[in-house]
Nucleic acid binder design. Structure first.
Length: 256
DNA sequence: ATGGTAGATACTCTA
């Protein structure tokens, strides 16, 4: 089973790239973030023609997540239980081939200390409470998406430059660790220990050709699923295309 | 210290 995550920064702008990537990679599951459209404007048919089921949780202009899956998406959950209908749409969960898949677009946080930063930290605390109340670390589960956090300095191209900044601050890293302490393993780091491996490069300043990036897109799995992970990688090819997303797809393969 | 990019949308228009 191959599971992938990709922040596409508008599914409508990126449609052809996502189609091509699905044809070439055929993941069982692709979790999308920042689809930036309402459900009705999501281009579902092109993906259905490729054999994918489409599960959407969109909103106007910002955020929005979706799951494309070859098998049926069961027990679909949109947002945190009890969310206000107007809440930002950043979480979509479904059970696919017996694996609970949780697709997240964690708030960016804007600037350390800002109101949006506080919202990000509170959102991560809510995510931990969601795991405590609704999930079981002894069952196969993966949470993947754009976490907007580089967990360690080896996930940052210039740790001194980024020290204490948004995406790298101690409080963000602690909030992420509090979530993963629930019982989650970073499956990418099971297979790669090197620095310099990134999933996001700013559009500005020629960051991609200089490899000035951060690793902020992740797949974390519970132990019973993580131990079956045979490979994980970041596919930098789409980031080099014309009109790319600023994020690259991240993939994990499981022997199940 | 600042600005650098990309996207949807507003605006406006049409129905």
């Amino acid at each position: 089973m191959k599971i992938a995550t990709w922040n596409v920064n508008s599914i409508n702008i990126r449609l052809a790239q996502v189609q091509e990537w699905l044809k070439g990679n055929r993941p069982d599951v692709l979790c999308l973030q920042e689809i930036k459209c309402v459900d009705e404007k999501f281009p579902a048919a092109p993906f259905q023609e490729l054999g994918y089921q489409v599960t959407i949780f969109g909103q106007p202009t910002y955020n929005g997540v979706a799951i494309l899956s070859l098998a049926a998406a069961e027990d679909v959950q949109r947002g945190f239980p009890g969310d206000d209908p107007a809440a930002q749409r950043r979480l979509l969960a479904a059970t696919i081939n017996g694996v609970r898949v949780i697709n997240v677009y964690v708030p960016n946080g804007s600037e350390v200390g800002s109101e949006k930063y506080q919202f990000k930290l509170a959102w991560l605390e809510q995510l931990r409470r969601f795991f405590d109340a609704h999930c079981d670390p002894t069952t196969p589960l993966v949470i993947c998406g754009d976490f907007n956090i580089a967990p360690e300095d080896r996930d940052v191209h210039d740790p001194a430059l980024w020290a204490g900044k948004i995406l790298c601050s101690d409080a963000e890293r602690a909030a992420l660790q509090h979530v993963t302490d629930w019982g989650l393993v970073d499956v990418f780091r099971q297979h790669h220990s090197d620095a310099g491996l990134f999933s996001w490069w700013d559009y500005r300043g020629g960051a991609f050709p200089r490899n000035h990036g951060l690793r902020i897109d992740h797949l974390w799995a519970t132990a019973p699923l993580a131990e079956s992970c045979t490979a994980s990688w970041i596919d930098k090819i789409p980031r080099a295309l014309e009109k790319p997303s600023d994020h690259a797809p991240v993939v994990a393969e499981f022997a199940r």
